[in-house]
C-alpha cells in the first residue's frame, strides 16, 4: 500500500521534507520503512523495539491509531499518516 507520512516542521529537517512516500500493509510497516531510510528520524518516531511512544500520536487520516490497533492498524492505498509529537511551549 502506498501511504504518505506527514511530519511536523521540527522533524522534517531529519528527512527530505514534510511529506514522505512510504509503503507497507500496516502503520507499523509504513513507519519502519521510513525509519530505515532516515536513521536520524527513526528514534523520534518509535522506540528501539519498534513500538510507538506514548508522547507521539499517529493519525491515520483523521483517526488516532491507538483506537484501531496501534502499529498493527491496516492501511489502504492513498492513506495519510500524520505524526503529532507532544509539545509544551506556551
Amino acid at each position: 500500500m502506498a501511504v504518505t507520512l506527514f511530519l511536523p516542521t521540527v522533524l522534517a529537517k531529519l528527512a527530505d521534507g514534510r511529506a514522505i512516500e512510504s509503503t507497507g500493509e500496516t502503520v507499523g510497516a509504513v513507519v519502519a520503512n521510513v525509519a530505515a531510510r532516515y536513521p536520524n528520524l527513526a528514534p523520534r518516531l518509535r522506540d528501539e523495539t519498534g513500538q510507538p511512544y506514548p508522547f507521539v500520536t499517529f493519525y491515520l487520516n483523521d483517526e488516532d491509531i491507538r483506537f484501531n490497533g496501534g502499529f498493527e492498524a491496516p492501511v489502504s492505498d492513498g492513506d495519510e499518516l500524520t505524526v503529532v509529537p507532544a509539545i509544551a511551549g506556551g
Binding site: 511512544y53 508522547f55 507521539v56 500520536t57 509544551a88 511551549g89
Partner: peptide, 19 residues
C-alpha cells in the same frame, strides 16, 4: 491524547528551540 510525556531534553523548550 498523550498518555505520558517525552523524557526531559527530547523536546527543546521555546527558549532553546525558538518560537
Amino acid at each position: 491524547l498523550y498518555p505520558e510525556p517525552p523524557p526531559p531534553g527530547l523536546v527543546p523548550s521555546c527558549a532553546e528551540g525558538g518560537v
